[in-house]
Nucleic acid binder design. Structure first.
Length: 847
RNA sequence: GCGGAAGUGGCGGAACGGCAGACGCGCUAGCCUCAGGAGCUAGUUGGAGCAAUCCAGUGGGGGUUCAAAUCCCCCCUUCCGCACCA
């Protein structure tokens, strides 16, 4: 027998693939395309098996689709800007570019050693000027369209990373990257107006039928659209000498007759005016300051007690005309709605709790269906819609219908209007760091903010030699870079020293892959029209909101710019599960990282690939197991042996044109072969159940062993090698075996490409698998001659009868009732019903 | 609190109203071996039985159905996401 030496096969076939440019592709409108993409990688240094699992999932898809006749784009690249490299530079002095490019080289080697079939010609790295030039290009387009703008605002500041974070990047009040509790700072920042696309991004979610429901829900919640009304409560008496009003936002205008007080966020602008006019301004401010601090600090870490105080002022409820007190409370958010609410304690749990605590009036205005008895002091808020009471002219009407009418009434009386609020905020993209894309604008004393002309792109990062880690922008410390002349007036000016959030880089990289060398445009619209959208996209669920929402936003912006014609970039999304070791996510700090290279040395790339696909469905989390890996290795050896065992005989044998008289076992093997083709194809392409695809292939191998046992060839270990022995077998046998082996080798090749290529050659094929088609399923062959039909009696299987494959229902019923075991169970009882179900299966009801 | 997903042998997991536990790991026995941490064969949900076979069984409780791991209702547990969003 030929020895199975996977490490040698890995090298041999990887070299052939590279030399023959097997996975490079070109735009070809004559052929159907398939764009298969895995989320590109941050070049942290080493990929562990958790990362690698995702690349293998994509590779199985890409390799399968190639053999299924598609022109497959399967590229890879590097999300190469980012803080870790810069932080490392501060510590070690190594320039981020040096460490990043080094890491890329290492990780690329790792992926190549795994035999992932990437079109490496299209490799991109976002830290290279030829890529980030187009971050700047897109930024300028957005600036022109008013989608990029600058404003002073309170932002999330991470004191460890020394930079601003977008709302999406703050998790539980802490930095998503380093876990530090974020601070608030007022800074002049660049924003992308993603809120302009809020409704579109929300509606687009409906079309994402091949995305995990979970991700769609997360995005929907994040966008957080709520329909309601903005209503003005006039303040009783003048404020700072003039009449004033407090605007509140509510989704429940139907409860407005129950609004017995108004609450302001501590940050609300009118608060300071109230303070100034209060009897003791200093005490007022001190109280409020306490809430501001408490609000910020405590809200981040968890539940806080609702606290507040009376401003001493009152407002007029514009519907009841009554005066209501104005309070300030820590649970009202300045950044949502108008920063002020009408409090309806009877019908809002938070307001109820607050009213109870401070003995504020509670007024019931909604009666839920079926609860006609209204108690004067309710024990809890009732938040359901219902029939209005104590609501003047609106009494007896029901929400939600009455809400529309009340909004219309408010509009007519000019005291309010219908409004839609979003939780989604504009995306702050300024970062006070070095290792990112320079924002391509120039600040001129005369002309203000001036865009860098397109012709001057890219604005390259200056070579900074030392990294201090001080909190100001590192770029500001390079005067020869900062000081420029204004493109408009030629006078002295300064460059913008902030860089872009790295999520900008990843928001359009999938488009760049369509045309990665273009130096005029981010990509050619025709190439994008051919390749996009991404047909299959896989990556971690941690990007469910950030990257995936930003990419959907960018795609729409580029659509409006005229570069693409579609809305959604990713047709089908798979969120792959993480690989755990000892119950924990792999990480360097925990010391539980499994390096793929160690596994390759021991078992070769294919065993690792096969194992990670077999262990569980792709979207499930899995626990790493060395034993499991070994099991997959054993399967490869077992497959190797059975192919090797028959190869010489089968390869020299031309299959007859027709497969005439076959023995029962030969027919059974063909059936198994075709049934396996059907199952594996559906498992990979439709269901993405890669684990069961592998199981089916294992079953086919088991079947081949059993079949061999009944032939002159015998089983591999009992036979003595792979010398041709065609004389001992009928040509029908060889043809059937050949069909099975070839189907097996082709279908296993997405999982174990190196082994498969070698076996394919062993079977006598000069052309590699890249040029091979997927086996086709023959329903005729897969059809069984005979079927075993289970017979249920009162729901329990009591017998099995054998029937011809196409037997009629009547025949099946007859056979079932004639069976001795069935008779024994029905004896002395009355047969009430006999059901013949597809399957087939016979179900008998007796009593 | 709200939303989502899930709960099946010793373990990873199969089974998208029709034979529960495919496939693999582990374990047991046999064969083959100088040897076996290799390979091959057989067995492996629990209980009863020499056996054929029978009983129970998919987190718990109800329901729909000839038939439920699967569909519906209630409850429990776990994981994930959001979390005072007015």
């Amino acid at each position: 027998m030929t020895d199975y030496k996977p490490q040698e096969l890995d090298k041999k076939w990887q070299k052939r693939w590279t030399d023959s440019r097997a996975f490079e592709v070109a735009t070809d409108p004559a052929r159907p395309k398939f764009y298969c993409l895995e989320m590109f990688a941050y070049p942290s240094g080493h990929a562990h098996v958790g990362h690698v699992r995702n690349y293998i999932i994509g590779d199985v898809m890409a390799r399968t689709k190639r053999m299924r006749g598609f022109n497959v784009l399967h590229p890879f690249g590097w999300d190469a800007f980012g803080l870790p490299a810069e932080n490392a530079a501060i510590k070690t002095g190594t320039h981020p570019e040096t460490s990043t490019l080094g890491n890329i080289a290492h990780m690329k080697g790792q992926l190549q050693r795994l035999g992932i079939s990437y079109a490496w010609d299209r490799e991109i790295a976002t830290c290279l000027p030829d890529y980030y030039k187009f971050n700047q290009w897109i930024f300028l387009k957005m600036l022109e369209r008013g989608l990029a703008y600058r404003k002073r605002s309170t932002v999330n500041w991470c004191p460890v990373d020394n930079t601003v974070l977008a709302n999406e990047q703050v998790v539980d009040g802490a930095c998503w990257r380093c876990g530090t509790i974020v601070e608030r700072r007022d800074l002049e920042q660049w924003f992308f107006r993603i809120t302009q696309y809020a409704d579109e991004l929300l509606e687009g979610l409906e079309t994402l039928t091949d995305w995990p429901e979970k991700v769609v829900v997360m995005q929907r919640n994040w966008i957080g659209r709520s329909e309601g009304a903005r209503v003005t409560f006039p303040v009783a008496g003048p404020v700072a000498g003039a009449p004033a009003g407090i605007e509140i936002f509510t989704t429940r205008i139907d409860t407005i007759y129950g609004a017995t007080f108004v609450i302001l966020a501590p940050e609300h602008p009118i608060v300071e005016k109230f303070a100034a006019e209060s009897p003791d301004p200093a005490a007022f401010r001190a109280k409020n300051a306490k809430f501001r601090a408490l609000d910020r600090g405590a809200r981040l870490t968890g539940a806080i007690d609702k606290e507040g105080f009376d401003t001493g002022r009152t407002a007029i409820n514009p519907f009841t005309g009554k005066e209501v007190p104005i309070w300030i409370a820590n649970f009202v958010l300045a950044e949502y709605g108008t920063g002020a609410i009408m409090a309806v304690p009877a019908h809002d749990e938070r307001d109820f709790e607050f009213a109870r605590k401070y003995s504020l009036p509670i007024r019931i205005v909604v009666i839920s269906r079926g609860r006609e008895s209204e108690s004067p002091s309710p024990s809890a808020a009732t938040t359901n819609y219902g029939r209005l009471v104590n609501s003047g002219p609106w009494d007896g009407q029901e929400a939600p219908a009455v809400i529309t009418k009340m909004i219309a009434d408010a509009e007519k009386r000019n005291i309010g209007k219908g409004e839609i609020q979003y939780r989604l905020k504009d995306w702050g993209i300024s970062r006070q760091r070095y290792w990112g894309t320079p924002i391509p604008v120039i600040h001129c004393a005369k002309d203000g903010v001036v865009a860098v002309p397109y012709a001057d792109l890219p604005v390259e990062l200056p070579k900074v030699a030392t990294f201090t880690g001080r909190g100001d922008s590192p770029l500001a410390q390079v005067p020869e870079w900062v000081n420029v002349t204004c493109p408009k007036c030629g006078g002295p000016a300064r460059r913008e020293t902030d860089t872009m959030d790295t999520f900008v880089d990843s928001s359009w990289y999938f488009l760049r892959f369509c045309d990665p060398a273009n130096n005029v445009l981010p990509f050619d619209p025709e190439d994008a029209a051919y390749w996009m959208a991404v047909d299959f996209y896989s990556g971690g669920v941690e990007h469910a909101i950030l990257h995936l929402l930003y990419s959907r936003f960018f795609t729409r912006v580029l659509r409006d710019v005229g570069l693409v014609k579609f809305d959604e970039p990713f047709t089908r999304l798979l969120t792959q599960g993480m690989v755990l070791k000892n119950g924990a996510v792999m990480s360097k700090s925990k010391g539980n990282v499994v390096d793929p290279d160690d596994m390759l040395q021991k078992y070769g790339a294919d065993a690792l690939r096969l194992y990670t696909m077999f262990v569980a469905p792709p979207e499930k989390e899995v626990e790493w197991s060395d034993a499991g890996l070994e099991g997959s290795f054993r399967f490869l050896v077992r497959m190797w042996r059975i192919v090797d065992h028959w190869a010489a005989s089968v390869a020299s044998h031309q299959p007859p044109a027709t497969l005439g008289a076959l023995t029962d076992s030969e027919r059974a093997l063909r059936r198994k072969t075709h049934d396996t083709i059907r199952r594996v194809t559906a498992d990979i392409e439709e269901r993405m159940h890669l684990n069961t695809a592998v199981s089916s292939l294992m079953e086919l191998v088991n079947e081949l062993y059993t079949f061999s046992d009944g032939t002159a060839h015998g089983q591999p270990t009992r036979g003595e090698g792979s010398a041709p022995r065609a004389s001992a077998e009928t040509s029908a046998t060889l043809a059937v075996v050949r069909e099975a082996l070839e189907a097996l080798v082709v279908m296993v090749s997405p999982f174990a490409p190196h082994t498969a290529e070698e076996l394919w050659a062993m079977l006598g094929h000069a052309e590699g698998l890249a040029k091979t088609g997927w086996p086709s399923f023959d329903a005729e062959v897969a059809k069984a001659d005979e079927v075993v039909v289970p017979v249920q009696i009162n729901g329990k299987v009591r017998a099995r009868v054998t029937a011809a494959a196409g037997a009629s229902e009547d025949r099946l019923r007859e056979l079932a009732l004639a069976d001795p075991a069935v008779k024994a169970h029905t004896e002395g009882k009355t047969i009430r019903k006999v059901v013949v179900a597809k399957g087939p299966l016979v179900s008998v009801v007796v009593s």
